[in-house]
Design a protein around this nucleic acid. Structure first.
Lengths: 214, 214
DNA sequence: TAGATTGTTAATCGATTAACAATC
DNA sequence: TAGATTGTTAATCGATTAACAATC
């Protein structure tokens, strides 16, 4: 692996796509794939794929292509998926429930170790193999379960306060679904998943393609 | 508005952030804001904000700043939110349910006009003001309700076939939550919302910051 | 007028695309 | 060996940052 070379954010964003697609291709029994074929499946140019992969090492064989299983394993390790991150979910509303049961997360090696909500009607409810816990137990549980990633699906107004508590308890990464900016200290990673961006973007482009009747 | 100048995708992605934040600021009773203050709230440089806005026109007043209400209205129109898009939801699982009730969509001017699922146990269920419809009624409903945007939350294997039917019925924009590539003809916009990208990205960066114990 | 802040142009930075030597 | 495909370097393209004239 090449060290000390900054990898583009865009590259990191494409790795999960490569990883997922290689998994599907492996299921189909394909053992070797070229950057050209993989690119067609994903909708990315072959040069882009080769460049992305080359920033981490030499995983292919010239004149041949990439060994599917081998490459998938390498990418999984680059992404750190083999670590089996412990995650907590804060906010057990409809979105929280959907995320808690999203099968892809388990596939990717993440395991939800705790679910919190401050609504007393929800506390104690069975959620998969876990019970929804009150927020009062947050700090103790984060430490006990060695949780380093938290998913926030609470209302915007509550997000910053929750994040502060999570970070104080040792969480290092926050996946934020609350439509608000969360400030975090250095050393803590935040990823904002703003659902309105995607839909609003569609609205923008459609507005330009579809004439407006007035 | 400046015509014939391509606007960067990155700019379009920031507009919803500006729009949302301006709405919050307006609620607080603030009437005028500078690019500097707005930038601090959002986490974007003031130059970036001015550049983004300048690609659509002159909305500010030199030496003064931007009128909050005025700018919010302009951005809303740029994004086409005033059109009140009719949308359909296909796949009424947990994620579909969460999206159907996501309050932000109504705030942004989108209205869900139909919900479909092929699971007979779900068909006929009450979902807000609507009933879940069988897929057989898809084409007829899309046309009748003048639906131009569809949200797909079906399993990966079913996504392409559903998309083909939607497009044939007149849908122009697809917001895809299925973890798979969907091919669409020219003139149709697709936006992929791949939830695993965000979480996987966190894993990558945390892997580099947090030492691995072996 | 003086201070503040926009809108715009120029400079820098970063990412993608193209080309090709290396080599399986 | 000949054909195929990678990994890498160079060229292009696009986006961000910096600087500043315009002007409220």
């Amino acid at each position: 692996m090449k060290e000390n070379i900054a990898i583009s954010k865009a590259t990191i964003d494409r790795l999960p796509l490569y990883f997922r697609t290689l998994g599907q291709i492996r299921e189909e029994g394909v053992e070797i794939i070229s950057s050209d074929e993989l690119g067609k499946k994903i909708g990315v140019t072959p040069e882009q794929i080769r460049k992305d992969l080359a920033s981490f090492g030499e995983f292919g064989k010239k004149g041949v292509g990439y060994y599917v299983t081998d490459l998938a394993r390498h990418i999984g390790e680059i992404l750190g998926l083999h670590r089996g991150w412990h995650i907590a979910l804060i906010g057990y509303g409809q979105l929280g429930g959907a995320l808690a049961n999203y099968p892809n997360f388990k596939t990717l090696g993440f395991s939800i170790k705790a679910i919190f909500d401050d609504n007393t009607a929800k506390v104690g409810k069975q959620a998969g193999e876990m019970k929804v816990q009150p927020l009062a137990e947050l700090e103790e549980t984060i430490r006990r379960e060695d949780i380093s990633i938290a998913v926030i699906t609470v209302p915007a107004g509550a997000a910053q306060a929750i994040a502060d508590r999570l970070i104080a308890a040792g969480v290092k990464g926050i996946w934020n679904f609350a439509p608000t900016k969360i400030n975090v200290p250095p050393g803590v990673r935040i990823c904002n998943e703003d659902l309105s961006v995607g839909l609003t973007g569609l609205s923008y482009y459609l507005s330009r393609d579809i004439p407006e009747y007035k």
